[in-house]
């Protein structure tokens, strides 16, 4: 009886050790990363708002490999993947830009072969670009901003400006939702696209801090996502 237990124990031990080895795969280690770009300029967007999708081919099915991923607010993305062939795309109607489309009107995709660390940038055409954004402290608790708007798309897809807004937040995440104060100017009230001016008074922050983050956002009519200027840290 005791011998039987001994053997059983050894068999169980061997099974455990070997099954452990067999069941485990190495985690994905190849990095795919990149940016949203327009002619070399990075497109800044809202965090968690503009999506991209990664598809993998070859296992008898065509499908997304994970739920939608989103771009960071500086327009960058990254994903840890297994080496292989992938396609990446941006869903239709997403983002403050036009992503290239196939002839049938569905979003096109980029083919990427991931092996080791790979960079793949999304070349998109924004409706507008915010140029020459200058955001600076004025006085003890004011912030003034100026920028110019460059209309990139002028054909039938052109969009009007709904508003331009200056957003200020106490953390580095700054958008229409994450802000402590904002100021906006409606598109119809902008007389000169090359000289848009905004200013806000920063309220007292709890807990107190002597710096804030700010950036300018531009909303277009019938486009959900805003395009932003680069983030600026302002110290009073």
């Amino acid at each position: 009886m005791e011998v039987l237990f001994k053997y059983l124990f050894i068999v169980a031990l061997i099974t455990t050790i070997f099954s452990c080895k067999k069941d485990n795969y190495d985690p994905p280690s190849a990095t795919l990363s990149g940016h949203l770009l327009y002619q070399g300029d990075t497109i800044h967007v809202e965090r968690n708002a503009v999506h991209f999708q990664i598809y993998q081919y070859g296992f008898g099915r065509v499908g997304q490999i994970s739920p939608d991923e989103t771009f960071a607010q500086d327009g960058s993305y990254s994903a840890l993947l297994f080496p292989g062939d992938y396609k990446i795309t941006i869903p239709s109607g997403d983002g403050p830009f036009i992503w290239k489309q196939t002839a049938s009107g569905t979003p096109d995709s980029l083919s990427v072969t991931v092996s080791g660390n790979q960079t793949a940038d999304f070349e998109v055409t924004p409706y507008y670009m915010i140029r020459n954004a200058q955001i600076a402290a004025a006085g003890s608790n004011n912030i003034t901003a100026t920028c110019s708007l460059e209309k990139i798309i002028n054909d039938a897809n052109a969009k009007d400006v709904e508003y331009v807004a200056l957003y200020v937040n106490n953390t580095q995440f700054v958008s229409g939702i994450n802000n402590v104060v904002s100021a906006s100017i409606a598109g119809a009230d902008i007389s000169d696209d090359n000289n848009v001016q905004l200013s806000v008074t920063v309220p007292s922050l709890v807990p107190a801090q002597n710096y804030v983050f700010a950036r300018i956002g531009l909303k277009m009519v019938n486009v959900e996502d805003l395009i932003f200027s680069p983030l600026v840290k302002i110290t009073f």
């Binding site: 999506h51 099915r61 065509v62 499908g63 997304q64 939608d68 869903p91 239709s92 109607g93 997403d94 569905t106 959900e224």
Partner: peptide, 17 residues
């Protein structure tokens, strides 16, 4: 769901997502 689209590629995805 991606599982539904994976099983039937004729189903087009929803817009804006």
């Amino acid at each position: 769901g991606s599982d539904v689209i994976g099983a039937n590629p004729k189903i087009v995805r929803q817009p804006n997502q």
